[in-house]
């Protein structure tokens, strides 16, 4: 999985938030998928976990219940929790398969027009996650953001005002970004996107009424 050349990585505040466990679940999902594909960001995220470990080690202690150790030994004697068996292989890294319930074939797509399809994934309320399917050469309607949006490419590639995004790359867009991602020719572009605010499309009928940039 590390043969791909990732150009667009995660920021320090996302990696730190993920390590600290304070990101909304949908953002954590994008981070976990990127870390599955990017050893550099995984190493950086483990460094942030080490900061958490150091802080934990230096904490002043809280008083335990009197029978705390005994109670813990009883928990241990009750046996280990059942391990989830993770699916391996396929287009989707394991954390995404955990949410989809399988690989690409298991996705329940809904058309959103222009050949673009999406599938919403269940996460907590802080942010929403969805899979996007953009036919090769097609554009995602021009949209701005009220919050932050992370878009990770799983297959194919798209281009927008910020450059080219291929498999493993993450685009991080905030309120200031007004962009028109367009899928490259070749494979359909499949992305995992998370946002902490609803997307605003500029009009209900997308400006770009037909696929273009068929290079």
């Amino acid at each position: 999985m590390t043969t791909m050349t990732i150009q667009h990585h995660l920021t320090d505040d996302l990696l730190m938030g993920y390590a600290a466990g304070t990101l909304p679940e949908a953002f954590s999902l994008v981070v976990a998928v990127h870390l599955s594909l990017c050893d550099d960001c995984r190493a950086r995220s483990e460094a942030y976990e080490a900061v958490g470990g150091s802080l934990l080690g230096a904490l002043e202690t809280a008083d335990l219940a009197e029978d705390s150790l005994q109670a813990t030994l009883r928990r241990i004697a009750a046996g280990p929790p059942t391990e989830r068996v993770r699916k391996a292989g396929g287009l989707f890294p394991a954390p995404l398969q955990d949410y989809v319930g399988g690989d690409l074939a298991a996705v329940r797509w809904r058309p959103v027009g222009m050949g673009v399809r999406q599938a919403i994934l269940r996460t907590d309320r802080g942010a929403s996650a969805r899979l996007l399917y953009i036919p090769a050469g097609a554009a995602v309607p021009d949209h701005g953001h009220r919050g932050r949006e992370l878009t990770l490419v799983l297959q194919g590639a798209f281009r927008d005002e910020d450059g080219r995004f291929g498999p493993g790359d993450v685009e991080i867009a905030d309120e200031a970004v007004q962009h028109t991602p367009t899928a490259e020719a070749g494979l359909p572009c499949i992305c995992l996107a998370a946002t902490d605010a609803p997307l605003r499309f500029r009009s209900l009928i997308p400006r770009l009424a037909q696929p273009f940039f068929r290079i």
Binding site: G21, P93, P95, D98
Partner: peptide, 27 residues
């Protein structure tokens, strides 16, 4: 370190107990 490893277990337990959310983990 052991402190770091325990921190990650405790962090995941906190997400589960206080937020009732799942913790996506990398492959």
């Amino acid at each position: 370190s052991v402190a770091t490893w325990i921190f990650t277990i405790a962090r995941n337990r906190r997400i589960d107990a206080l937020r009732r959310a799942r913790r996506p983990e990398p492959e």
